[in-house]
Design a protein around this nucleic acid. Structure first.
Lengths: 113, 113
DNA sequence: CAGTATCCCACTCGATACTG
DNA sequence: CAGTATCGAGTGGGATACTG
């Protein structure tokens, strides 16, 4: 059994790993996405609660990143057909699986500030 | 002992967590940084080895991201004063601690392609 | 309340050519 | 060998004003 150290097989495994990373980063790499996920980790929240909870983010960016998170199925958007309108957001199974990993990354990031 | 669910204390912890994440992402969020780290995880490598190992990256970006990684002390740059020049790169303690976390993130990313 | 629409800057990234 | 230099397209993100 030959050791897999040839340049080709090595690259392939590295590039495979990297492919997963690139995908993960494209989903959570937005400027405000981690903040949104952390906020929703406390429980389902209305749009205005998110907005007040993360005061630095502009409406444009909050909506944009929420839509992307929704598209990537990391948050669920629950629209209540009422007047005045009420929209809530919550984590999905997919993002709940991710949270512990984000916590590790966040801890590392704080440790190495 | 009061449950910490007031808006203020909640925000503070979220923003603290997020602060670590933002820092972590700023260090590893570059398009090629994970690939570089994974490549170096196999052991110390010369500049040309990295370049050949990650053929998609342009020289400009490879050098740029290497410099940023070096600045953030995630890779060490070892210059051998010879002719022709020889430069090697290797992981630091700091990035070795990070690798398991990156692997988790990468696994999650692959799983949710 | 929960968003859209518009404008615009800064920065990222890639390709190509050149160099100590 | 291990990089710089330069240019140009594309993207991320902020400020502000408006709306069903």
């Amino acid at each position: 059994m030959r050791k897999e150290t040839s340049t080709n097989s090595l690259n392939r495994s590295i590039l495979n790993r990297n492919c997963g990373m690139v995908n993960a980063l494209s989903m959570v790499g937005g400027r405000w996405k981690p903040a949104i996920l952390y906020s929703l980790a406390e429980g389902r929240q209305r749009y205005s609660e998110l907005r007040n909870g993360i005061p630095q983010v502009s409406e444009r960016m909050l909506v944009k990143q929420l839509r992307e998170l929704e598209h990537d199925r990391l948050v669920a958007r629950i629209v209540h057909p009422e007047v005045p309108p009420r929209v809530e957001y919550e984590l999905t199974e997919r993002s709940k699986e991710l949270l512990p990993v984000l916590n590790l990354l966040s801890d590392w990031g704080r440790k190495n500030l």
